[in-house]
Design a protein around this nucleic acid. Structure first.
Lengths: 226, 226
DNA sequence: AAGCACCATGTAACATGGTAGTTTGACATC
DNA sequence: GATGTCAAACTACCATGTTACATGGTGCTT
């Protein structure tokens, strides 16, 4: 017998449902989110939906316009740049901390992730590769041992996850290069070269940022052709 | 002409009131915050109070325990360390960005703040010095030009502000050293030496962290003497 | 006196009703 | 045909009612 952990509140599961729907692409960017409709479809009252939307707004996933309605976020080019830069700041800082003060655990988690990615790559398992990718970056951010930083990261990163699935169709990414980059970062960490690891990680994130930029400006063109 | 910003919702002003009460020390650390009582004293219904408390919880200022009540946060030693380290990460990153891409504006704001601090110091105006201090760090974080980072900072920093007023009685800080440090940072920025400026800023923040640690462990002793 | 169940009370979580701001589109007017 | 008007529908915001849970006290049992 062990103490039972409180069942998640209705608001939490509601937020998780909506968040997941946005990240997975089920809810398109910019789509309308009526409290009432969400409450009906999820089978709850408007209160937990409202609370959930407020939480998601503070995560940057939802924009709620007073008396008008709530909408899935629609990033400007600048927002994407800011977001990715912010992410890079947090993740590189976390990596530096992890290397200097939590090396063993960090290495174990990263190696585990890289192994999974390698397996997925040889098996042409793209979703498996994505899972490994997420695992890799989670290892970095969780390896820092700073709970405040971890909270801040999780509070910021959702839009990035959403952008990934919304802008990229499967197989759109250069997984070979991505694999090389992850491996290089792992090697730098193994040798304890924090500066190199951070530089490599920055470049890695920059590549994703650049891909976002291209995709987004491409979309803007097709939506508003002169 | 620019889009008009909506008048603040009741929830927002409620959150601001409570936040300010916590930061200013009016509400002691760990004190109970009943939704009903807050609603009565503020003259609003429970709904905006509840929303406000949820927002403040995500800022780390309030801990709401299901069915038990809401409480002003009570930091452990580790929380303080994590928080300050997180703050240092964000602020140093912002400073680096500001120096390289927004130098003129950054310098202007920082000089303004330092001048105010200098005036306050010669006039023995401690509250004025605090104001200048906040202005200085705001210049750094707003000088980065990254809205995501700015949001993340504001979302994280409230507990630090609260700790400052709760742990320090007026005149408790070494304002002379603080003044020297701020001036040194300003000089490093003026000369464009980002590495030096960041190092100085890190040390500056470390001093505050150390002061927090001492004060907190001191308090823990008096509260629970063996 | 110590341990126990039971009950009164306080709390946040959730449901629902009312209100005011916003949008939309039909329709009248020019 | 373009434009102004207005009403109806829709929205989030706020207020209040209801419920389930947590807690502290009281009196009974041992």
């Amino acid at each position: 017998m062990q103490p039972i952990d409180h069942p998640k509140s209705l608001m939490e599961v509601t937020a998780a449902k909506i968040r997941n729907a946005i990240i997975s692409g089920e809810l398109p960017l910019g789509s309308k989110l009526s409290e009432q409709r969400l409450a009906d479809t999820l089978g709850v009252s408007r209160s937990p939906v409202r609370d959930a939307l407020a939480a998601l707004q503070s995560e940057g996933l939802v924009r709620v316009s007073p008396k008008r309605g709530s909408f899935v976020f629609t990033p400007e080019l600048r927002d994407v740049d800011d977001l990715c830069e912010h992410r890079a700041v947090l993740e590189t800082a976390a990596l530096r901390m992890g290397i200097t003060r939590n090396h063993a655990m960090l290495m174990q988690q990263m190696e585990h992730a890289v192994a999974a990615m390698h397996r997925a790559l040889t098996g042409n398992d793209t979703t498996g590769y994505s899972t490994g990718d997420r695992q890799f970056h989670r290892a970095i951010i969780e390896g820092c041992g700073n709970r405040s930083l971890l909270r801040g990261y999780n509070h910021t990163i959702s839009p990035v996850k959403a952008l990934r699935t919304h802008l990229f169709t499967i197989m759109d990414e250069d997984t070979d290069r991505s694999m090389r980059e992850h491996t290089a970062i792992l090697e730098a960490c193994r040798s304890g070269d924090a500066d190199l690891a951070v530089t490599l990680l920055e470049e890695h994130i920059d590549h994703l940022t650049a891909a976002f930029r291209i995709k987004l400006s491409l979309e803007a063109e097709t939506e508003a052709p002169e």
